[in-house]
Computed example of a mutant assay.
Amino acid sequence: MVTLRAFGAAVLVGLIGLTVGCSADDIGAAASSPPPAASTPTPTPTSPTPTALPTALPTALPTSTPARTTPRVPTLVGQSMKAKDGRNTSRCLKKSCEVLVSTGSQFRIKTSKGFATITIVAVSPQGLTIGLYGDSGFGGQTSSGSAPGEFVAYNEVHISALAVSGKSAVLRLTR
């Protein structure tokens, strides 16, 4: 009967033999044969010399993971509700403007293609919806989404949402 220690030694001899490039028979024969004569050159191994394996494995893997930081996306809520032109929407007729508007507000703008009316249809934390109706018959509604920035251009007029609070919003029109 083979003991566990004898079996382990046999496996180790086999592994060393595979690493060096010879069999267990070659190892056993080398141990029982006399050393080569001085006139016979000693062959050099063609396989790399085996390296020692680590004797201990790590006992535990790291348990903490680096904290992930998610970039904060700005929202219209919480932005400054100060508008450069206040509630003076008449400034928007022919020039760039920054105005405070509310649900139901309505004002006119002039573009290179004619006049149009902007109506504030809805304001909420998710953004604002405007109706844009040109005197030429063109018209429709569009929403800003919840992030500040430009959300529609009509001819050369670019409309941006800057902030919302309750049923009010700050709009910027640039030309």
Score class of each variant (00 low, 15 high):
89 T>S: 15
135 D>N: 06
134 G>S: 09
20 V>A: 12
172 R>S: 11
7 F>D: 08
147 A>H: 10
61 L>W: 05
101 V>P: 01
7 F>R: 11
80 S>N: 00
16 I>M: 13
89 T>F: 09
88 N>D: 14
119 T>M: 04
141 Q>N: 15
19 T>M: 13
64 S>H: 09
84 K>M: 10
23 S>R: 15
84 K>T: 14
62 P>A: 09
145 G>A: 15
89 T>P: 09
24 A>H: 08
175 R>C: 03
97 C>F: 02
18 L>G: 11
158 H>S: 11
173 L>N: 06
73 V>E: 04
7 F>I: 08
51 T>F: 05
59 T>S: 15
33 S>V: 06
67 A>S: 00
79 Q>D: 05
170 V>A: 10
60 A>P: 06
174 T>R: 12
50 P>E: 08
26 D>C: 13
99 V>C: 13
168 S>R: 15
95 K>C: 07
137 G>H: 01
42 T>V: 15
145 G>M: 15
17 G>Q: 15
3 T>C: 02
138 F>P: 01
87 R>W: 03
135 D>I: 00
108 R>F: 01
169 A>F: 06
66 P>F: 12
54 P>V: 07
61 L>I: 12
154 Y>A: 12
83 A>G: 02
25 D>K: 12
13 V>K: 13
105 S>W: 02
47 S>Y: 11
172 R>F: 05
140 G>A: 07
83 A>N: 01
15 L>W: 13
53 L>I: 03
54 P>Y: 04
51 T>R: 12
160 S>F: 01
124 S>D: 13
18 L>C: 03
10 A>Y: 14
117 T>S: 05
120 I>Y: 05
57 L>T: 13
111 T>W: 02
97 C>W: 01
110 K>S: 14
87 R>I: 04
100 L>A: 12
138 F>K: 05
158 H>K: 12
160 S>K: 02
136 S>A: 05
22 C>Y: 13
161 A>D: 03
52 A>G: 11
20 V>T: 10
171 L>Q: 12
86 G>L: 13
28 G>D: 00
109 I>G: 03
166 G>D: 08
90 S>M: 00
